[in-house]
Design a protein around this nucleic acid. Structure first.
Length: 812
DNA sequence: GCGGCGCTTATACC
DNA sequence: ACCGGTATAAGCGCCGC
C-alpha cells in the first residue's frame, strides 16, 4: 500500500522512493526505476531524412551542471496526438529529470513544432508512465536491500521493516480496505507570533495513544501529561513519540501554517534536531503562496488545507476554524479555553489547558478519520500522492485527472502557461455568464423547481467544448469540431461514473460510497471553471464562454416551453427554473419534464428538484429610478418551504455571516412563521417584541456582534469600513491581527462624537459601552425584516420604529 | 452640514 | 495566483450646494 512518495538521485539517475505498508502492517520502503523523458513534436511534413538528422543531433545533446552531466539516453520516433491532432513526435529519454528543461532549451530546430512534458513533476510523470499508483494495493517483488550499500545504504538508514528494490509489480485484483495509522498533534504557545514565544505543550493523539508533553506546571492527576525539564527536552520527547508510534499520517489543523513551522523554529532555537522523518531528516518547507511542511516517509496532513480548498464550499460552517468545522462534521462542541488567563495561570488553569490541548488533537484525529474516505477517493482518482492531493486546489485536481488519463488518448500533454502568458490571460475581458430571472416580489403557493443536472459539465460534453476541439471564430461565434475531443470525453466518463456511484451510494449508503460519488461530482463541477482559469494547461476562454452561452440558451428555451404550457415562471438562476403548479397536477408537470428532456441536446438532462408548499420573494432595497417595487424583485434572495416543512433560505441576511445574530435569528423566525402559516400575523408579534427589547436595552451583547472578514492588510484599505477600524483597534491593543481573520465588533453609542459615520461607533467585544439602539433598529432589524413585510404592504419603519426616532435622543 | 452618487468592500448564488 | 460570472447591499469618500 503506497503512501508517501519522494524521488532521489543516485549516480546521476532518478529513482522513486515509496513508503508504504504491507497487508500485515509492516512499514516498507520500495525503490522503483524512473526514466525521464519528454517530447519533441515535429512540424507536419518533415522529410524522413531530415527527421533522422534531427534525431542524431538530439542524441548528442549534453547539459553540464556543477554536480552532473546529463545526456540523452535514447530517442524514439512515435505517432502521437497533440490537442487531438495526429503528430509525429520524438520521445527523448534523458539521464536526469531535473535537466529536461535544459535539454529542451537546446531544441531550437525549426522542424520542431513544440517541446512538451518537460514541466511535469517527477512523481506525476512516474505514475503517468505506469508507475505504482497511490493508495492501491500492489503485489511487488524485488531485491531486499536492507543491508546493502546500494543507493548509498538507504536500506540501513531508514526506519522501516524492510526495503526493496522493485523488480516486478502488479496491481492487486483484491483491494481490501486500508486504514492508515494516523497520529494527530497540536501545540500551545505563549505568543502566537513565530519566533516570539515558547511552546508550552504538545499534544498527541492516536489509536491507544494520548499524550500531552509539557515543561510547565505538572500534576499527577492527569495521567496523559508527561513533564520535562525544559522546552528542549519536550521537543525531543515529541520526536521520540512520533518515532515510537510509527504513523503513516501525522495530522494537524492549520499545521502547515502554524504548528510545524513553530516546532521547527523553536527546535532550532533550542539546538534540537526535529528529526521526524523516517530517515532522521527534519521537515522541509516548500515555498509557494502557502507554505507546506513535508516530512520524509510520513505524510504530513494539514486538514485545514483539504477543507479550505475542496471541502468548505459544501459545508454550512461560516468559518474554517476547527471549532466550527468539528461541530458540523463531528457534531462535537469543543470546550474553549480563555487565553487571557495565560498571564496568570493557577493550578486548575493548567489542568484545563492540558485538557484543552489534548482535546484539539482528539478532534483533529476524529476529523482525519471522518475525512479519510474523501481524501482517499481524491487520491485514487487523481493518482497523485496523498501529500499533494490534500493540499491541491480544484483546478489542480482537474489537471491531474487530465494528465493521468491522457495516455488512453495517446495525447501528449500541453504545457503549463508561463508567467507572461498568465499575465495576458488575466487581462482578458469577462465573458457573459449565466441568466438570472428577475422575480416579482410576493408570497407564492405550490411551486415546482426543475434543474439541469451538472449543467455546465453536460454542456461541455454535449457541445464538445474544449481547447483541442476549438477551431475558429466565425461571425463572432466560436466553432468547435464535430469530432469528440479528449477533454469532453473524459468529462463524460466522469459524469457517467458519478451517476453510477450515486446509484451505488443510494443502494448502499456509507462514507466510502458517498465520498466516491461526491468526488466525481466535484470534479465534474470544476471542469467548467478550469477551462476559464488563467493557470490551466488546457485553458480555453472560447470554450468557457461558449459553455455559459449554450447553458443560457438551453435554460431560456426550457423556460419558454414551460411558459407556453401555461405555467407562471417565478424564478430561474443558471440551471434552475421555478414555476407555479397552478391548477395542474404533479403528474402533468412530470410529463412536461419528459417532453422537454426529449428535445435536449446530447447528455443534457432536466430533472425535478422538488415541490414546495410556499415560496417568498422580496424586492431589492435600492430601487432604480423609474421602477416600481413590483418590477424590482431581488435576484438570488428567496425562502422556500417544502411539503415536510423543511425550509430552504437563499441570499437573505439569515445566511450572511456579516450580520448580527439578533437580525439573523429574527429574520429566520419571521420567514419560518410566514412560510408555515401563509400570513404575517405571528411574524409581526415577533418583530414587535424584539424592537421592544432593543429599546429597553434587554438584548445580550453577544447577539449584537458583527463579524466581517479582514481580506487584506489594514493599511491597504482605500475605504476604511467599520471592520477595518475594529481591526486597527485590535492591533493598537496589542492583539495579533492577520489577513483573513474574522473581525468581531459591535456598534455603541458615542456621546462624545456627533459623527454619523458607523465606524465611529465601533467597539471591540470586550470594550464596555452601551449598544447603539438607533443603529441596531435602523441598520440591522429594519433592513432584515423590512422588505419581507413590504410584501404584505406593511411599512415596518412607520409601524414600529419611527415612533422611537421621533422621540429622539431626549429619552436616553 | 447635508444629500446624492460613485466606489470599495464583503458575501452570497449557482 | 491557485475554478467562472451574476447579484445584493452597506458604508465610506467626495462632490456640489
Amino acid at each position: 500500500m503506497p503512501i508517501d512518495y519522494s524521488d532521489f538521485d543516485w549516480q546521476g539517475k532518478n529513482y522513486v522512493k515509496i513508503i508504504g505498508r504491507t497487508l500485515s502492517g509492516k512499514r516498507v520502503c520500495v525503490i522503483d526505476d524512473y526514466e525521464a523523458s519528454f517530447w519533441a513534436i515535429l512540424q507536419p511534413k518533415v522529410k524522413e531524412k531530415k527527421i533522422q538528422e534531427i534525431i542524431e543531433k538530439i542524441s548528442k545533446i549534453k547539459v553540464k551542471n556543477p554536480s552532473r552531466t546529463s545526456s540523452v539516453l535514447k530517442t524514439e520516433l512515435c505517432n502521437k496526438k497533440f490537442l487531438g491532432k495526429s503528430v509525429r513526435a520524438i520521445k527523448i529519454s534523458v539521464t536526469n529529470h531535473k535537466d529536461m528543461h535544459g535539454i529542451a532549451d537546446q531544441l531550437g530546430m525549426k522542424e520542431i513544432y513544440k517541446r512538451r512534458e518537460y514541466d511535469i513533476s517527477l512523481i506525476s510523470k512516474y505514475v503517468m508512465q505506469g508507475g505504482i499508483e497511490p493508495l492501491c494495493w500492489y503485489r511487488i517483488n524485488g531485491e531486499n536491500i536492507d543491508n546493502s550499500d546500494d543507493f548509498g545504504g538507504i536500506g540501513k538508514a531508514l526506519d522501516v521493516d524492510f526495503c526493496l528494490k522493485i523488480e516486478g509489480k502488479e496491481k492487486s485484483k483484491e483491494q481490501p480496505e486500508f486504514k492508515p495509522k494516523i497520529l494527530a498533534y497540536d501545540i500551545e504557545v505563549s505568543d502566537i507570533e513565530l519566533g516570539k514565544g515558547e511552546i508550552l505543550m504538545i499534544s498527541l493523539y492516536g489509536k491507544n495513544f494520548k499524550k500531552v508533553l509539557t515543561w510547565k506546571k505538572c500534576n499527577k492527576k492527569q495521567d496523559f501529561v508527561e513533564c520535562f525539564k525544559d522546552e528542549e527536552e519536550m521537543i525531543e520527547a515529541f520526536v521520540k513519540s512520533v518515532k515510537e508510534y510509527q504513523p503513516d499520517i501525522l495530522t494537524g489543523y492549520f499545521s502547515d501554517g502554524f504548528d510545524l513551522p513553530y516546532l521547527r523554529a523553536n527546535a532550532h532555537q533550542n539546538k534540537v534536531k526535529l528529526a521526524l522523518g523516517i530517515d532522521g531528516s527534519q521537515p522541509v518547507f516548500s515555498r509557494g503562496r502557502l507554505v507546506s511542511g513535508k516530512i520524509s516517509g510520513i505524510v504530513h496532513l494539514d486538514l485545514y488545507r483539504f477543507i479550505s480548498s475542496v471541502y468548505f464550499q459544501y459545508l454550512q460552517s461560516e468559518t474554517l476554524g476547527l471549532n466550527d468545522i468539528a461541530s458540523e462534521l463531528l457534531g462535537e462542541k469543543k470546550d474553549d479555553f480563555d487565553f487571557l488567563k495565560l498571564k496568570n495561570m493557577k493550578e486548575q488553569d493548567w489542568k484545563d489547558f492540558f485538557a484543552y490541548n489534548l482535546q484539539d488533537s482528539v478532534i483533529t484525529y476524529k476529523l482525519a478519520e471522518k475525512l479519510w474516505p474523501d481524501i482517499l477517493e481524491f487520491t485514487k482518482i487523481m493518482k497523485q500522492p496523498l501529500f499533494n492531493v490534500s493540499r491541491n486546489s480544484m483546478s489542480s485536481h482537474v489537471e491531474d485527472y487530465i494528465l493521468q488519463n491522457l495516455s488512453g488518448f495517446d495525447e501528449i500533454a500541453e504545457k503549463r502557461p508561463l508567467h507572461e502568458e498568465i499575465g495576458k490571460r488575466r487581462e482578458r475581458p469577462k465573458y457573459v455568464g449565466a441568466f438570472v430571472f428577475q422575480p416579482k416580489p410576493g408570497l407564492y403557493e405550490n411551486l415546482c423547481f426543475f434543474d439541469f443536472t451538472s449543467m455546465y459539465a453536460s454542456v461541455i460534453v454535449s457541445y464538445n467544448l474544449s481547447l483541442s476541439t476549438f477551431e475558429s471564430i466565425k461571425e463572432k461565434k466560436p466553432v468547435f469540431s464535430k469530432q469528440k475531443g479528449f477533454f469532453p470525453k473524459m468529462l463524460e466518463e466522469i459524469i457517467e461514473k458519478r451517476k453510477k456511484y450515486k446509484q451505488e451510494y443510494n443502494k448502499n449508503k456509507n462514507p466510502v460510497t458517498k465520498a466516491r460519488s461526491n468526488a466525481y461530482k466535484l470534479l465534474a463541477n470544476a471542469a467548467y471553471g478550469y477551462q476559464g482559469f488563467f493557470g490551466a494547461r488546457y485553458y480555453c476562454v472560447e470554450a468557457a464562454a461558449a459553455t455559459a452561452s449554450y447553458a443560457k440558451e438551453n435554460i431560456l428555451t426550457a423556460i419558454d416551453k414551460i411558459k407556453k404550457k401555461g405555467y407562471e415562471i417565478i424564478y430561474s438562476d443558471t440551471d434552475s427554473i421555478a414555476f407555479l403548479l397552478g391548477k395542474n397536477t404533479k403528474k402533468t408537470v412530470l410529463e412536461m419534464l419528459k417532453e422537454i428532456n426529449l428535445k435536449l441536446p446530447g447528455i443534457m438532462e432536466l430533472e425535478l428538484e422538488d415541490f414546495y408548499k410556499r415560496g417568498l420573494f422580496v424586492s431589492k432595497r435600492s430601487i432604480e429610478k423609474g421602477k416600481t417595487r413590483e418590477d424590482s424583485g431581488a435576484k438570488k434572495k428567496y425562502a422556500l418551504i417544502d411539503e415536510k416543512d423543511k425550509m430552504k433560505i437563499r441570499g437573505f441576511e439569515t445566511v450572511r455571516r456579516d450580520w448580527c445574530k439578533l437580525s439573523r435569528e429574527l429574520q429566520n423566525k419571521v420567514l419560518q412563521n410566514i412560510l408555515k402559516k401563509g400570513n404575517e400575523k405571528s411574524a409581526l408579534e415577533l418583530i414587535k417584541e424584539t424592537i421592544k427589547e432593543i429599546k429597553a436595552r434587554q438584548i445580550d451583547k453577544n447577539q449584537l456582534m458583527i463579524r466581517t472578514q479582514l481580506k487584506k492588510p489594514i493599511n491597504e484599505y482605500v475605504s476604511k469600513g467599520p471592520h477595518v477600524i475594529a481591526a486597527q483597534k485590535m492591533e493598537d491593543a496589542g492583539l495579533a491581527v492577520s489577513q483573513g481573520m474574522l473581525i468581531e465588533y459591535y456598534l455603541a453609542e458615542n456621546k462624545s462624537s456627533k459623527s454619523k459615520l458607523v465606524r465611529d461607533k465601533v467597539k471591540l467585544p470586550d470594550e464596555s459601552g452601551e449598544y447603539d439602539i438607533d443603529y441596531y433598529l435602523n441598520n440591522q432589524i429594519l433592513p432584515a425584516v423590512g422588505n419581507i413585510l413590504e410584501v404584505f404592504d406593511i411599512d415596518v419603519e412607520k409601524e414600529f420604529i419611527k415612533d422611537h426616532r421621533q422621540k429622539g435622543l431626549g429619552d436616553f
